[in-house]
Write a protein that binds this DNA or RNA. Sequence first.
DNA 1: CATCTGTATTCCTGTATAGGCATATTGCAA
DNA 2: TTGCAATATGCCTATACAGGAATACAGATG
Lengths: 117, 117
Amino acid sequence: MELTQIYECFCDRTRLRILHLLAETPLCVCHFQEILGEPQVKVSKHLAYLRSRGMVETKQEKNWVIYSLPEQRGRELEANLKCLQDCASGDPEFKRDLRALTKLRRRDEPSVAIACC
Amino acid sequence: MELTQIYECFCDRTRLRILHLLAETPLCVCHFQEILGEPQVKVSKHLAYLRSRGMVETKQEKNWVIYSLPEQRGRELEANLKCLQDCASGDPEFKRDLRALTKLRRRDEPSVAIACC
DNA sequence: CATCTGTATTCCTGTATAGGCATATTGCAA
DNA sequence: TTGCAATATGCCTATACAGGAATACAGATG
């Protein structure tokens, strides 16, 4: 994956929030909708953008599509994801997202990524 | 500086090469032209882009304009610049740029950033 | 089959950029 | 002053998104 492609994926706030969440756990579209508070189209399009660039992978689970970070990540992607996590730790919005995720996981325990919505 | 703004600056190869060089030393426009092998307009415009976003600072030195990274860098910028340096170390083009810089500095010693071209 | 749910896509409009060419600008030197 | 060197800017065209509205599609369920 080209370095600039990584940064192209990173240069939108919604996509950053998505990737930040995915660093924590795989998620389906409706989870993103709920946590980010963004309309379905917007979320879906950004996910498509990320997928078209190999930044995320998908897996069909019944009616849902589960997004996750790729299993195999290049050195550069790995470094930048780590850097993002570091930067995110000081940002109120990212922290809020993480709290929302935690609450949602507690609610849906134990099968988060399956019976997701 | 907003995190996404950093990534917007990072998502063009020419700008990445510029920033990678600036992490080493301040430089004037014609140095960039020479090292990058890109036309003056292109270099100048990318530098203007970076300056308009506070990613670089300038200083007039006689007939030349010396560009440098800002003295004060936020935590996020610092982290991402470091990450960029790390990623660049494995990229042939970035390495070539660095070699070209070294050669140019040797040639222009000792007053690199002054009698620059 | 009919329908519902979750997700993707198409069409549209507005905005941002990339990069080239020509030209402007600024400071210095003869 | 005239001219040159270094740099910036305006105008142009092509391309890429962002985001909303409406619609399509696919799988599950009744």
